[in-house]
Write a protein that binds this DNA or RNA. Structure first.
Lengths: 111, 111
DNA sequence: TTAGCATATTATAAAGTAATAATATGTCAA
DNA sequence: TTGACATATTATTACTTTATAATATGCTAA
């Protein structure tokens, strides 16, 4: 799985309202799934590479229980995927496009 | 106010988790404010230029009351701004960066 | 097989959001 | 100044999310 994203350019074309109409439910579900400070940080950390649940507990300062609930939901929403290796579950970003999105969000809004 | 966005490229640099930590609350508030199909469509339509409340009622198929509540909230969250002209309130996207974000989201996720 | 760690599930209470209806306010034209 | 239209506010109910605690399951090493 690729992890970090080096400087690159994203091609952005004119906004089409009708295209948006077709996928606004799906996109708003995605945004809602991201719209929590800790879920956002989970995704941020996962853009750096796969992590175990306990690593994420440390990194995100969230309780084990809540993290597990977040991860379950995020998996159901297609934000992350997981893979067991022995006693650890490794979580990772489910889709390269999400890494792109987070990179763009950070570039636009994180000073 | 500029409205539509022609094809362009956005420079995207490496993700910095620490930058993200500092603004994750603010960013997640923004994403949450966007994370509703109709609020997303309101923003989509507004990227095409300022609109009155009644125009948006037509375009977004939402009740006057709920639209007004959405707009109030979106204004408080910094997504839109408004300006009265006679009997109409014109709403517009509050910040050029939001137009960029919506363009990117559409380019990445709306097929 | 069991002890201990890693993770998931369940339950519950508090808080926030959504949808709807009813009413209020602001503005213009007559 | 009144009537009509445009928009905002308030109230209410249903629904969803969040936070927390308690408990359960899965896996490995001893």
């Amino acid at each position: 799985m690729s992890s970090t994203k080096e400087a690159t350019k994203i091609q952005v074309t004119k906004i089409s309202v009708s295209k948006m109409e077709k996928s606004c439910q799906e996109v708003s579900d995605l945004l809602r799934a991201l719209s929590h400070p800790q879920r956002l940080m989970i995704m941020g950390h996962l853009t750096q590479g796969p992590k175990t649940v306990s690593e994420l507990v440390e990194l995100c300062e969230v309780s084990q229980s809540q993290l597990s609930q977040f991860l379950g939901r995020m998996k159901a929403e297609g934000l992350v995927k997981s893979e067991r290796q022995g006693k650890y579950q490794y979580y990772a970003v489910a889709d390269e496009r999400l890494i792109q999105l987070i990179a763009v969000i950070q570039n636009i809004f994180c000073r």
